[in-house]
Design a protein around this nucleic acid. Sequence first.
DNA 1: CGCTATTTTGAGATGGCTCAAGCTATGTGG
DNA 2: CCACATAGCTTGAGCCATCTCAAAATAGCG
Lengths: 246, 246
Amino acid sequence: MNAMTEAVRKNNDIDAVIRDAPLFQGLQGREIDSVVAVATIRSLRRGEVLFQQGAHPAELYVVAEGWVKMTHVTQNGDQIALRFVQRGEHVGGAALVRGVPFPATAMAASDAIIIAWKSAFIFDLVGSSRTAARNALELVGDRADEFLSRIQELASDSVEVRLARHLAELVRRSARKTDRGVGVEFPISRQDLAELCGTTLFTVSRILTRWRDLGLVDPGRQRIVVRDVARLAGLANDRPQALDAR
Amino acid sequence: MNAMTEAVRKNNDIDAVIRDAPLFQGLQGREIDSVVAVATIRSLRRGEVLFQQGAHPAELYVVAEGWVKMTHVTQNGDQIALRFVQRGEHVGGAALVRGVPFPATAMAASDAIIIAWKSAFIFDLVGSSRTAARNALELVGDRADEFLSRIQELASDSVEVRLARHLAELVRRSARKTDRGVGVEFPISRQDLAELCGTTLFTVSRILTRWRDLGLVDPGRQRIVVRDVARLAGLANDRPQALDAR
DNA sequence: CGCTATTTTGAGATGGCTCAAGCTATGTGG
DNA sequence: CCACATAGCTTGAGCCATCTCAAAATAGCG
């Protein structure tokens, strides 16, 4: 594939991501065309920060390629990983449409490509399109739902169940499938998993070691492959018998 | 005060609550008048259920008098108290404007008066009024913020800090001030507090006993009076020295 | 090949949970 | 108006999941 066709493929690709983005669902004709027209692209290298917690949103973002980690820092200084955002999803979109500061910092978890729109353009859109306004409400609502399920977890599940659930979710959304199992497709550390589950990296490490001995996962340095998705999902649903030998 | 003037007072009162309700903020003239016109009133006795978790919202509610407890039941069967709703606040409003099932059950925590609107009317309003649409977004966004702060708490504060924070919040919103301190103005059990903090009634009981010995609170059967709001607030901000003797 | 970040493992401490038992307001029926 | 029933609360004892801190092992990377 030469440079030219590669560029064309990329454009089509980005076009598709834009048209499928949650905030733009259902937009028609001129509206969606103008959204595509004014989109800008930027690429991030792993570790680069897209925006900081507390900053005022100036742009709306969608991930076109790669993964972005959203981290919230509490008053006590503890880090919480709110979410890993993948291709097709908004980053910080709920804050932007509400006009409030970002509640978390967004950092590229892998090299990534981000699509961006100036906030003024988005405000116009949401103000003028009933469909976009409804999408904005849904976006924020989904965020609330997600938070509620985190509260449930923290209030009533063990660390092991929480880890199983988040890991199952990550591999469900990941495309890296091998004959040996399904891997998380970006580098993720024990610390990252700990922040996702509200625990410590030590506890995560111990649990992964146990799961490895049971043949559930194949953990590595910044890398995890789930060898038995079904059993992991069983654990995630708080069915301890998922750990029984087969 | 005779029955007639009492009825007039009540009406003015309810009128004021409606006009100040979050979803109706900023509505003008005919719009707000029609909102007032079609409002219906109902009263609940303590313990009565307004709606059940999982039900599809048929009406929008605002509390005109009393308190309503929102309880979410997890898959494991654990109860979580999401929030105690007071006069002027919506109950289940975020679910209604989103058109999703109620995430929690609403039960009167004291005798209460509720103002209600048919959901069709509210959908018309939110669909036709830009102001109401923006208010809906804010309502849902505030819910998300609230949930995020619960996640923070659960992930990084001790039970004692969480209890201090929720109790401080309750008395901040409560109007029952006496010379002996500030009381929560509706009956609230140890179990209720435990559900609010994600702990057990035993742990709550122990902490309250300790606080009583320190002169911080005056706990009773389904009743709590905070005698030193400032020290409690200090605890809530995770400053252990708040417990030092004075 | 050595440096450094990441991970594992160990040992010990502990906050909060569980369960059992007893206590005390409050309301109720006799 | 008393005695009893009951719901709510307290207290005790034991336990255990998880945290903390220290140290060693390992794996990439420059």
